[in-house]
Design a protein around this nucleic acid. Structure first.
Lengths: 230, 230
DNA sequence: ATAAACAATGACTATTTGGTCACTCTTTTT
DNA sequence: AAAAAGAGTGACCAAATAGTCATTGTTTAT
């Protein structure tokens, strides 16, 4: 069973050592997870890559699932935080500009977190669609929360009648899917001709907002209607 | 080593038996793959679920990777076929209507295949982002082909100047991501409020086309400008 | 009818795996 | 300084795993 407390004085040998060991184990595991996939990596693989004895692993983590959860924690916090703040802002929003501002703020918060933990995000993208079993459970749980929040947020935006009358669940999941796929492409460095990664958010924003914004006309135009900008 | 030929007269006992056994093994494996993930399913699991002895598995498939490849085959064929036909049609297209018609044709071909093999598609969606290792190799390879084709197609559509000046790779991957995420939601029956699945393609089409279509009016925001290529 | 090829089986081997534990050494507490 | 608690180790165990193969029964070709 893993010892969860951090004994000794802060900054003392024990404390420093514990942080360091945890970091080494997490780093080694994360690298292996990305190389071979969650399920294919054994505890032996991790301890060998980390240069410690097998028993040491179990002093720091209860099992592989606990390790994954620890890896995920910071990203999860940032993601959910960003989504909730955006949700709250949207309930208050009364005009299009305020609404877009809320979206932009959320994007900024999230983007920051993602850039800080790119490997963890890759792990998330890589595993989040699998069955919620074993070590993957927490990853899938996070994915569900993200999807739920996204739909929720879109619903809130809809209550002001600012968006095209598409089912919130549909447009929300479409956007989540688009964002995730582009993130994966960028993080995997499988250069498919994406150009400067920093320009992607803008392109995507244009694309999404023009797709979502309710066209100026009263009836829902289908083909050649150009949405008017407010 | 798996015997690949199908001996005996067509329709004879051997032939019928071989088809049946292959089907039973594939069905059992597919179900388990979706329940637990590719890596977590063992050959023993599969043969037990299929109700045959372990040795029998190796008479029909060289290993787990070969089984996955066999499962994937029909979907792969349909997907690539649809993408290529669309690509060829787009090179010839000279106006917006013809272009959209090409897209619609592709969507129809693909949708048909997907409805015919929903479980295989789920397997694809579930595994296609993982590392290209072991039994997952062929799935990831297909995902790469799909992405490549999508970008290619979008590039072709761009040559006629009919689309917004967003990098083709960006918009193509965004659309692929959106489609995949919605498909996953529908196939997983994690009802997130999607409504009637049959209405999704229409909603998505509206969303995507309005996002991609070059606005008729004068220049809009300049953020999405495409960098000049020499 | 008979020989040759095919099919199915499950025991068997080789390894690998998650997890434990007694033992030793180091740090903290008293 | 002595006792208590924490930390690291790697041998060890029981269970699981991929893949093989001799054996037995069935179908096909001659």
């Amino acid at each position: 069973m893993a010892t969860l407390k951090r004994p000794g004085p802060r900054g003392g040998p024990r404390d420093v050592n514990r942080r360091e060991r945890t970091r080494v184990l997490e780093d080694a595991a994360l690298r292996l997870f990305l190389e071979r996939g969650l399920d294919a990596v054994t505890i032996d693989d991790i301890t060998q890559a980390a240069g410690v004895a097998k028993g040491t692993f179990y002093r720091y983590f209860e099992d592989k699932a606990a390790l994954v959860d620890a890896l995920l924690a910071p990203v999860r916090e940032a993601l959910l935080e960003g989504l909730e703040v955006c949700g709250r802002a949207l309930v208050a929003a009364r005009d299009v500009e305020t609404m877009f501002e809320a979206y932009r703020a959320m994007a900024a918060v999230i983007a920051g977190a993602l850039l800080q933990y790119p490997s963890v995000v890759r792990l998330y993208l890589q595993e989040c669609r699998g069955p919620a079993v074993g070590a993957r459970q927490k990853v899938v749980a996070l994915a569900r929360q993200v999807a739920h929040h996204a739909v929720d947020i879109t619903q809130k935006a809809h209550t002001h009648g600012l968006l095209r009358p598409i089912r919130p669940a549909v447009s929300a999941l479409a956007v989540v899917g688009a964002v995730e796929r582009l993130l994966l492409a960028v993080l995997s460095e499988e250069d498919a001709g994406l150009g400067n990664p920093l320009e992607i958010p803008d392109a995507l924003t244009t694309l999404v907002l023009d797709g979502l914004r309710r066209p100026g006309g009263p009836a829902r135009r289908k083909l050649d209607g150009e949405p008017k900008r407010p």
